[in-house]
């Protein structure tokens, strides 16, 4: 295996980590106005991700940095090409992050309502747009022979990418409701459990639609034939297991199965994408691949050493932080946010 492949895998891992962790963050933010009817309940909901949202977002920053370091052309074409979509994601993430910190630091109801909107919109928009963007990587956008994006914002929008966006939204909402069912006590816990019993329906439907769309809109059939292989089947099985555990109210297992669904389906995604990192809709020859957009061998070697040392360290202390705050959050307990 060459280093380009190693870095494709590492970047996949970073994005998978981001979507697994920030996935329930986004879900929590999206569900907050619906499950939190009183101010105390809203605070309880926000505090479940209070100690973690910031570090979860660092997965995105690290993934972005890793794309820059390992595949500069991917970084340059993607970030300049998806300019307006990324601008919206940035504005949303900025407003949302500040909102967590600022919301409960003032009693004024208008102040709190405003930041609640920032949390809701700031979680909803990135969830959908990340889905759209990842759909566009694989479906293809106009990229010319100089690796330049030559389209506009609307080139990202297609039936396929919209299905991807809705799938991300539905999955993250379900993920968030399961997380809340595990991390809260009292009325919010009951509401979160009931929400999960409803949210599995759209998540399942859109996943089936997405599975069909993969054959209809992108070149999966050419790549793998009718039988997609073990990984997508496993991710489908994990989703069905999630539905089973949610319906039988075993939320610990639901969370495990939901996590497996996200991880396995993203492994499938990156496996289908490889060796491309951005598909050109103009000509296959213009595709950005791990080979034509990477850094030099030397830089990849340096970065590999750094990653091998620090990724395990990060996983260790971030894992520990979840363990340290493993207790359920109560509405009548001490709330920081």
């Amino acid at each position: 295996m060459n280093l380009q492949d190693v870095w494709f895998i590492l970047i996949s891992v970073l994005f998978i980590g981001f979507f697994f962790l920030e996935g329930f963050d986004f879900g929590v933010g999206i569900l907050m106005p619906f499950l939190g009817k009183t101010d105390a309940e809203r605070r309880q909901i926000i505090n479940t991700i209070g100690p973690h949202w910031d570090a979860n977002e660092v997965w995105l920053i690290t993934a972005g940095g890793a794309v820059f370091a390992a595949f500069p052309h991917w970084y340059a074409t993607l970030f300049s090409g998806f300019y307006l979509a990324l601008m919206v994601i940035l504005l949303a993430l900025i407003a949302r992050g500040v909102a967590f910190e600022f919301r409960s630091k003032d009693e004024n109801p208008t102040w709190r309502r405003t930041w609640d909107w920032a949390i809701f919109i700031g979680s909803l928009l990135p969830a959908v747009l990340f889905g759209v963007a990842f759909g566009a990587f694989i479906e293809g956008v106009p990229i010319d022979q100089d690796k330049h994006f030559v389209g506009n914002f609307f080139d990202l929008i297609s039936p396929y990418t919209l299905i991807c966006g809705l799938a991300a939204l539905a999955i993250f909402a379900l993920h968030g409701s399961i997380f809340l069912a595990l991390k809260t006590e009292g009325a919010v816990r009951e509401k979160a459990e009931r929400a999960a019993q409803v949210l599995w329906v759209p998540a399942l439907i859109i996943s089936v639609v997405l599975a069909i769309a993969n054959y209809a809109y992108i070149d999966i059939f050419e790549k793998v034939g009718v039988n997609p292989g073990v990984m997508p089947v496993a991710s489908a099985a994990a989703l069905l297991a999630t539905v089973y555990f949610v319906r039988s109210r075993q939320f610990g297992w639901s969370f495990v199965a939901m996590g497996a669904t996200i991880v396995l389906s993203l492994i499938t995604y990156f496996w289908f994408l490889y060796p491309n990192v951005l598909v050109s809709s103009l000509d296959e020859a213009y595709n950005l691949t791990v080979h034509n957009s990477s850094s030099s061998q030397y830089t990849l070697q340096v970065m590999t050493v750094v990653a091998l040392i620090f990724v395990p360290v990060v996983l260790f202390y971030q894992g520990w932080s979840y363990w340290a705050f493993r207790k359920r959050v109560r509405a009548d307990g001490h709330l920081e946010y």
């Binding site: 910031d54 830089t299 750094v306 620090f310 202390y317 340290a324």
Partner: peptide, 27 residues
């Protein structure tokens, strides 16, 4: 990118994770 991306990625991996995770822990 071959030069400039590396310190940025290392910054995120080595430093941002550390400060963000432990700030949450501290608060």
């Amino acid at each position: 990118g071959d030069i400039f991306g590396a310190p940025l990625a290392i910054e995120a991996l080595v430093a941002f994770f550390l400060e963000s995770t432990f700030l949450g822990v501290w608060i």
